[in-house]
């Protein structure tokens, strides 16, 4: 729309439009004063409307074009902060879509004498605002996905601690479901520690693993095999009765691995592998005297 009157119209009635937009926003319930101060919202509105006008004046209504860079930046920033503040997708989209009403009203009063022009202008305005709204939602979702991914990463780091129980004995308490990505990280961090601590025995404790299916069992076996290839023995401990039942029903072969029902039992085995033993102090003292 090379001869659009829209930028001109926005420039002439900017203050009016802003006031009406604010009204439309609160009518749509998109203000959420508990999450965001009204002044802040007004500043955002003014910024956005101003940059939309500039972009329109520079020409083109292709919002992926170069003239619209500032608008895109603004919208991305707005939707990102809204995703973090906990706005719903509807509230975020309404922020842009509620600009339609004041714009249409303004257009109607401007072009009341020329219905054909009015329809044309309304159409181009509505496509423009729709594009902006969709762009906002897209960035909103992207921001949310970023948050989810960061949380997943944080969870991965949290849930795979390698614990040293004794010289040459490491334990790996696994918590949560094991998938391929986690197994990879568990394996890597475990094997790295095996090298640095020069470990004889590793105890994989699966008390915190809610279910064991064939895939999880396969991942466990992979870890055990990799540790064995490096010259370290693996013991799997913390197998609950239900899990033992599932493993047998699934036909998973764990005969090549030492399994114990509790971490304490596994630790005993690990100590005996290292020719160590735990004795009561009194008994030891009596033994020394004798």
């Amino acid at each position: 729309m090379p001869d659009s009157r829209l930028p001109d119209l926005i420039a002439r009635h900017e203050a009016d439009l802003l006031a009406q937009w604010a009204k439309a926003l609160s009518a749509a319930g998109a203000t959420r004063e508990d999450l965001m101060k009204p002044e802040e919202l007004r500043a955002q509105c003014a910024d956005l409307l101003g940059s939309v006008r500039q972009a329109l004046q520079r020409g083109g209504n292709d919002i992926t074009g170069q003239g619209w860079e500032k608008v895109r930046e603004l919208l991305t920033e707005i939707s990102r902060t809204r995703a973090q503040q906990g706005f719903t997708p509807t509230a975020t989209a309404s922020f842009v879509f509620s600009l339609k009403e004041p714009l249409f009203q303004r257009l109607r009063s401007e072009h009341a004498a020329n219905p054909a022009l009015l329809v044309e202008e309304t159409w181009s305005t509505t496509t423009l605002v729709d594009k902006l709204g969709l762009f906002t939602i897209e960035s909103y979702i992207k921001a949310r996905e970023d948050i989810i991914r960061r949380q997943q990463e944080a969870m991965l780091e949290l849930s795979t601690p390698v614990v040293k129980l004794w010289d040459g004995i490491l334990a790996l308490p696994l918590i949560g479901t094991l998938d391929s990505a986690r197994t990879q990280i568990v394996m890597e961090s475990l094997l790295q520690r095996v090298v640095t601590e020069s470990t004889d025995v590793v105890i994989l404790d699966i008390t915190g693993v809610p279910t064991v299916d064939t895939l999880v069992a396969q991942h466990l076996l992979k870890t055990v095999t990799a540790a064995r290839l490096m010259g370290t023995d693996c013991i799997i401990s913390g197998i609950r009765p239900q899990i033992a039942q599932t493993i047998v029903h699934l036909g998973v072969d764990l005969t090549s691995v030492i399994t114990k029902s509790s971490l304490a039992d596994a630790f005993k085995v690990a100590l005996s592998r290292r020719d160590l033993m735990v004795v009561k102090r009194k008994a030891a003292a009596a033994g020394a005297q004798a």
Binding site: L191, A226, A227, L229
Partner: peptide
């Protein structure tokens, strides 16, 4: 470790 993982 990397070699062990590759072989597995």
């Amino acid at each position: 470790p990397a070699v062990a993982i590759t072989l597995v």
